[in-house]
């Protein structure tokens, strides 16, 4: 097969093919089965969840868990829709701001050398190492000194400082030919216009990637300790409360996790090609 498709590909023995496909199928099953199990759980009526021995598949699927999720809101302190609003609001604001400020910063770093440019870029690369968990404690001290605990700011500002998006954007922008910028300069365009009208439209895959990464990170994160007010909590926090609610809540917990999973997965489905395109320039050369 491989030989026919492309002359350059070196063939693999039949055994090689067999082993490769078996491995891929095994790994694929390992990756996907827990997710499938989670989805199936969300459609199980209570008596199937409590069944012994537990079954993987659902025999009489029901939507009652999803219904309960919304009824449950009456028992919670605030309506379920408030958590949905919080999650959507924070994710959308962070994603939009992140794409804008990270791109604005990436452009000079990609296309110019100026006093400090090397130092700034090196610092950004080192900061790639420090995930939000690692900087959690010092950020907590800072946020509380600034009076931001229990505000939307505590959810919006720290993720904006993440450097992954900026790094990917900068690496992608390097590949944009300088001739495009020079032509615009001859026409008398200033730096800002070049950035908005020449560079940004040309890096669409990169900003779609930034959108996904940033949305996914914020949507999935539960800043338990930055936020204590029930009205400000987001879906992941509620989900973990539901999941900890014992056997009666298993189905509802699963339903909420399925709802939580959908947006990032759908976004990725629609943008995968662009993301792979962007990651092709993600290499770290120095």
């Amino acid at each position: 097969m491989a030989k026919l498709r492309t002359g350059r590909m070196l063939g693999r023995s039949r055994w090689g093919n067999f082993i490769m496909f078996s491995l891929l199928i095994l790994c694929g099953a390992f990756m996907v089965l827990p997710i499938v199990y989670s989805i199936l759980q969300s459609f199980k009526p209570l008596n199937e969840i409590n069944l012994f021995p537990p079954r993987f598949f659902v025999t009489r699927p029901t939507l009652s868990n999803y219904g309960k999720l919304f009824q449950l809101s009456a028992n919670l302190w605030v309506p379920f829709s408030r958590y949905v609003f919080n999650s959507v609001f924070v994710s959308v604001v962070v994603t939009a701001l992140n794409v804008i400020i990270a791109s604005m910063c990436a452009y000079p770093l990609a296309k110019y050398t100026f006093p400090g440019s090397k130092l700034i870029f090196r610092t950004i690369v080192v900061a790639l190492l420090f995930s939000s968990q690692v900087t959690y404690i010092p950020q907590y001290v800072l946020l509380s000194k600034m009076g931001m605990i229990n505000t939307y700011w505590a959810m919006i500002l720290p993720p904006l400082a993440s450097t992954l998006g900026l790094y990917l954007m900068r690496q992608y922008m390097i590949a944009i030919p300088d001739s495009l910028m020079e032509a615009a300069k001859l026409d008398g365009a200033g730096e800002y216009r070049i950035f908005w009208q020449i560079i940004m439209p040309n890096v669409k895959p990169a900003w779609l990637t930034l959108m996904i990464f940033s949305f996914q990170a914020v949507w999935n994160s539960s800043n338990n300790t930055y936020i204590y007010k029930e009205q400000l909590k987001t879906l992941p926090t509620v989900m973990s409360q539901l999941a900890a609610g014992g056997v009666a809540r298993v189905g509802v917990g699963a339903a909420s996790s399925v709802i939580l999973m959908l947006p990032p997965v759908l976004l990725f489905v629609f943008t995968q090609t662009n993301i792979i395109d962007t990651m092709a320039t993600s290499g770290m050369k120095d």
Binding site: M104, I120, L142
Partner: peptide, 27 residues
């Protein structure tokens, strides 16, 4: 000469300084 470039970077660098650099120094 490069003031436009610094201005473009300013918003990110501000957030980055406040939420990454300062926390590291503080810790």
């Amino acid at each position: 000469k490069n003031r436009h470039l610094y201005l473009l970077m300013a918003p990110f660098l501000l957030v980055f300084t406040v939420f990454i650099i300062i926390p590291i120094i503080v810790s």
